[in-house]
Each structure stands twice: as structure tokens, then as C-alpha cells.
Amino acid sequence: MQDLTSHGGGGRTGFSGRLLRGGTEPDPRFTLANERTFLAWIRTSLALLAGGVAVEAFMADLFAPELRKTVAVLLLVLALLIGGGSFFRWLNVERSMRRKDPLPLPWIAPVLAIGGGLVAAIMAVFVLVRPA
């Protein structure tokens, strides 16, 4: 592995050099695994995005407009948070690996769990109380 502390970032220049300063280059397999995890979070975010749009576009006959709008906005805000959070999670993990620190806990996981649970609860209540 390459020591990059002595020459200010080594192969890292420009944007990458500014974000990932110092430390030693980790095993490329770890860097690639971190990238794949980032992409998995991005796909989760895109699924939430499509879900939000689908609720707003396809459920006009089923839900009251206010409820439809609330669920759609909730899903879209969740997509926004997961999309942004995935980048910071990737960056923090990459920095931790370079400094050989313990990996940080992903705060987007509880956000996704709480947000997804909230949307599911709203839908469940709606289905239960909706007149037949």
C-alpha cells in the first residue's frame, strides 16, 4: 500500500485531493466495496423517489389529495436525505479507512427505518379506517 502522508495526497489531486486529505491509500478492494455500498444507497433513494412519484401519480382515485400529498412528500424527503446522506457516509468511510480509524455508524440506516416505518404506518391506518 502506498503512503500518501509525506507528499500531500499522492495521486489525489483537485476535488479528490481536497476531500480526501492525508492518510494511506487503503486496499483498492475496500475502496471499490465502499463505492458499491454508496451505489446501493443511491438505488434505495431512487426507489423512494419513484415510490413518491407513484403515490402522487397513480393513487388519485384511492387517497384524499392531502393524504396523497403528505405520503408523496414524505417519500421524496426521505429520498433526498438518503441521497445526500449516502455521499457523506461514503466520504466518512473512505476517510476512516485512510486513517485506519473504526468505521462510522451509518446515520442514514435509522433515518430509512424510521421514515419507511412512518410511511407504512400511515398507509396501514388509512387502509384500516377507509370506508369500504
Partner: peptide, 9 residues
């Protein structure tokens, strides 16, 4: 040795 693709990400 590999520099991550920060710009793409």
C-alpha cells in the same frame, strides 16, 4: 493502489 472516483460519486 487506487484513488476513488470522487467526481462520479
Amino acid at each position: 493502489a487506487m484513488t476513488p472516483d470522487v467526481a462520479s460519486i
